[in-house]
Design a binder for these strands. Sequence first.
DNA 1: GTGAAAGCGCTAACAG
DNA 2: CTGTTAGCGCTTTCAC
Lengths: 347, 347
Amino acid sequence: MQNLTLEDVAERAGVSRSTVSRVINDQPNVSEGVRDRVWKVINETGYQPNVAARSLASQRSYMIGLVLPHSVSYLFTDPYIPHLIQGVAQSCNQSDYTLGLFHASSKEDEKKMYPRVSRAGLLDGVILQAGHHGDPLMDRMIDSDLPLVFVGRPFQDENVSYVDIDNYDGAYNAVSHLIKLGYRRIATIAGTELSTVGIDRKQGYIEALRDNDLTVDEDWVVEGDFTEMGGYQAMEALLPNRPQAVFAASDIMAIGAIRAIRNAGLEIPDDVAIVGFDDLPVANMSNIALTTIRQPISRLGSTAVEMLIEMIHNGSKLHNRIILSTELIVRDSCGANQELKYEAKEE
Amino acid sequence: MQNLTLEDVAERAGVSRSTVSRVINDQPNVSEGVRDRVWKVINETGYQPNVAARSLASQRSYMIGLVLPHSVSYLFTDPYIPHLIQGVAQSCNQSDYTLGLFHASSKEDEKKMYPRVSRAGLLDGVILQAGHHGDPLMDRMIDSDLPLVFVGRPFQDENVSYVDIDNYDGAYNAVSHLIKLGYRRIATIAGTELSTVGIDRKQGYIEALRDNDLTVDEDWVVEGDFTEMGGYQAMEALLPNRPQAVFAASDIMAIGAIRAIRNAGLEIPDDVAIVGFDDLPVANMSNIALTTIRQPISRLGSTAVEMLIEMIHNGSKLHNRIILSTELIVRDSCGANQELKYEAKEE
DNA sequence: GTGAAAGCGCTAACAG
DNA sequence: CTGTTAGCGCTTTCAC
C-alpha cells in the first residue's frame, strides 16, 4: 500500500512513468484528461513519491537544517530557542521543506557537527544560529558551499547572509526613553563582548547618550554575562556611583539588578529606574513590571527560512541582511507611569 | 571535491566499488591492507557517501522524526519542549541519526502533518509527543507502519510503546510528604483531564490520601488547566474550604495559587502549605521557594530515541513502556523547613 | 503531449 | 576476500 512506485501508478493510469512524474511535479505538457486520470489513481491508491529516490535523482532534498552550536546552549533556558524553532518550523511547513535540527549538546558533539550537517545529499541549505566569537563551527559552515543564512549577526559578517534583531536600535530607544523621562545619570549592565548582541546593545546605549549630549562614563558601564547573577553583581558594582537609571542588556540581568537594588534598600523606580531587553514572560510576572524591548524572535526564524529558500532557488551567491525592528514596552520599572522625580526633557 | 562518488574512491584505491562500500560500512571480509588503503583515499579526498543514494538503496534513512502536535504548543512556553528536544538531539548525535523536527504551528498545519511525516523513504521511525485526548494525529500515527514511540502516556496506551514520567508516583510522593508534615486537610489543584498527565497526577493525590486513611473530599479537588490563571482561580475556589495544604499538579498553577493565597492575606507556608510539580526554574526564583517534584525531561527524550532505535533495528513489534522516576525537592513552601504547626505523623 | 532510456550514487546478493 | 551485476524509485533529456 505504501510501497507503490511511480511505475505502478503509471500502469494503473495507462500512461508512462514520465507522465506521472510530470503530473506530480506540476509540470506542463500534460493534457487535462490525462492529468485528471493520473490524480485520480494517485488519490485512490494513496501513492506517495519516495523521498530518497526523488532526492537522488533531482539532487534536491527539500530539507534544510537548523544548526545550534554548543555556545548558544544557554539560550535553551529562556524562550529564545523555542520561539526561534517555532518560527523556523512554521515557515518550513508553509514551504513544504523538512526541518532537520542539529544541536551540539557538548563540545565533543560540536566536532562531529560539521561532517553531519554537510553530508552530501542531506540538506539543501542551513540556518545557523550565530554563536560566540571564535566558534569553530561558524567558520567551517561559511567555507562550505551550502547555502547559508545566519540568525543573529555573526562576528565575521562580510560575505554572509543574516537576519538579526536591531539590537543597536532597541538599546538606543531604551536609553532615549530614560533620557526623555528626565534621567541623566544612566548606567548600563552590558552583555558579554563575546557576542555581537552584547556589542550592539552597548553601542546603542553609548550613541543614545552621545546624541543627547550626555557624557559616557566608563564607571557606568559594567559587563554582566547575560545571567541573573551577572546582573546582580554588575548592579552591586554600579550602586556606589548612584545611577538614577540603568539599562540592562537583557531581562535576566535586569532581574538580577532588581534584586541587588532591593537588597540595598532602594526602591524601583523611585530610587533607581530600570529598563531591560528581550521581553521575556518573566518580565511581566516579577514584582515590578519591567519596561523592556520586545523582539520578534519567531519572525526571526521564519525570515531566515524565507531568505534561505530564496537562496536555494536562485542559487544566488548574493549576501543579504535583514534587520528586524524592536518595540519599546513601557511598564512600571522605568518610572514613566508615575510622577517624574527629575525634570523631563522636552522635545 | 564534494562530488566524489564511491566509484571515484574505488578507482583511486584500485579496488571495486563494493569493497569501498564494505569499508565504509565497516563490514567484514576486507583485508587489513585494502581497508587501510581505502581509508587513506577517503580521508585524503574528503569523500562523503551520498545520503540520498544510500537511503534509496538500503531502504534506511537514518533519520527519525520528533513530532509535536499542535495541542502541545503551550509546552513551548515552559522549558518542557526545549529540554525534550535537547535530550532527543543528544541521543541522536550519539547514535548518528539525523533528527527531523515536525511541529504543527496551527490546526491547519496539523492536517498536513501526517502526510509530511509519513512520506515514503523519509523517516525510519518517529517519536510523538502525546497530546490531548482525541488528537487526530496520534491515531493516524499509530495506524501507520512506522516504528513509533510516544513521549508521555497516550490515552490509547494499548499496543503502543511509550516513555513517561512517573506522574502518579510523583504526585503520590508530594502528597505523602505533606501528610508526613502533619497536614490533614489537603486539597489539590488538578490538571485537565484531557491529558494523561492531569489524570495520573490526580490519581496519585487520591491514592496517597487513601493509603493514609484520609478521606478524599470532592470539594478539595478543583481543576486548573495547567495555567497560572487556572491555578489562581482554582485556589480562590479552594480557599473557603480552609485547606491546610495544597498539591498543585504543576508549578505554573502553584504560582497562580500562591498569588491567590497572598491576595487573601494569608501566609505561605504558615497558613497554607503548597507543593508543585515540574521543578521549573521559576520555582526556585519566586518569592517563596517552591517545594516540588523534579522530572528528568531531557532523559525522557533520550530514552525515547533509544527505544525507537532498538525498535528500528530489531524490527520488533513488541511494545515497551518505560517509566522514569521523579524526585521530591523540598524547599520552603511546604513548611518542612520551619516549626510544624500541626502534629506530625510519625512513621 | 507522451514515452523510452539513461542515469542519480549507493547497497546487496551472487559468483568467483 | 573481492568484483560483477542488479536494482532502489525517481527525474530528465531526447526522440517521436
